[in-house]
Nucleic acid binder design. Sequence first.
DNA 1: ATAGCTGCAAATGCTTTGCAAGGCC
DNA 2: GGCCTTGCAAAGCATTTGCAGCTAT
Lengths: 142, 142
Amino acid sequence: MDVTHVSETEPLGRLRKAGLRPTRQRLALARMLFSQGDRHVTAEQLRDEVAAEGARVSMATIYNTLHHFTSAGLLRHVVVDAGRTYFDTNTGHHHHFYVESEHRLIDIDGDTVRLASVPDAPPGRAIDSIDVIVRLKPDIRA
Amino acid sequence: MDVTHVSETEPLGRLRKAGLRPTRQRLALARMLFSQGDRHVTAEQLRDEVAAEGARVSMATIYNTLHHFTSAGLLRHVVVDAGRTYFDTNTGHHHHFYVESEHRLIDIDGDTVRLASVPDAPPGRAIDSIDVIVRLKPDIRA
DNA sequence: ATAGCTGCAAATGCTTTGCAAGGCC
DNA sequence: GGCCTTGCAAAGCATTTGCAGCTAT
């Protein structure tokens, strides 16, 4: 294979492009995060996955890295549950289902939810982002 | 004044109606919460307000009470910030602006945000609620 | 060489819990 | 009286921080 070319979608390329030093830990995390489609992860989850692969990455570094990735635009924060922070690898326009009973997030395509009218921001403020969270519960009839 | 009648909008009436024993602590908290229009409070905020009035209510009781009120339908939970739980005295249909820089919530009337299309819940699940959070930042042009 | 990273352990902040004493019906 | 509540202190969890040592460039 062509080792002279590094795709931007590969871990190394992503980090380079984002101006982040490709350390062993970051490469491992980037691989876990970006090699299997869109994902929603917590720091703890990532720690376990990385550990399962035999790589040792401390919690502090996982948090540091998740925050760096977020600042670099590689990840997005999702707030759906007090006291649990999710990071979403899908940084495009979309929203979320949240299955409270399972602590599970499911993407909703951005176009599936259309806001017929968006309120004006109060004076002196601007809209930063709009989150739509559809909370789900088990269906009784199931 | 008519002391034989207890309005359901007064602290005592609210608690009675909700089947909650009207203790000194609950009455104090109910007064703070429901006597000044719609509010968004954190446990800590309430503790400070109550303390300022000279009433002594422990943190454990404030949390207990907020949860009891929520279960009874007197309050609603608002999740906008990981690691900070807000309770909303407005239990009707509405959404929120969240001013991240000030940790401040502002109600958006339910009819101001219209969802043109609501996604179907995945099989075996039912929609519990839909939260729309419009995150605000200071307006640069201000 | 040096600015940036990592990892440990301690600290933090918010919330919950165990349990004995007190209060409402 | 009996069950519900309260309050203290301790425990719990997720996350952050300080800082000495390591590493990519």
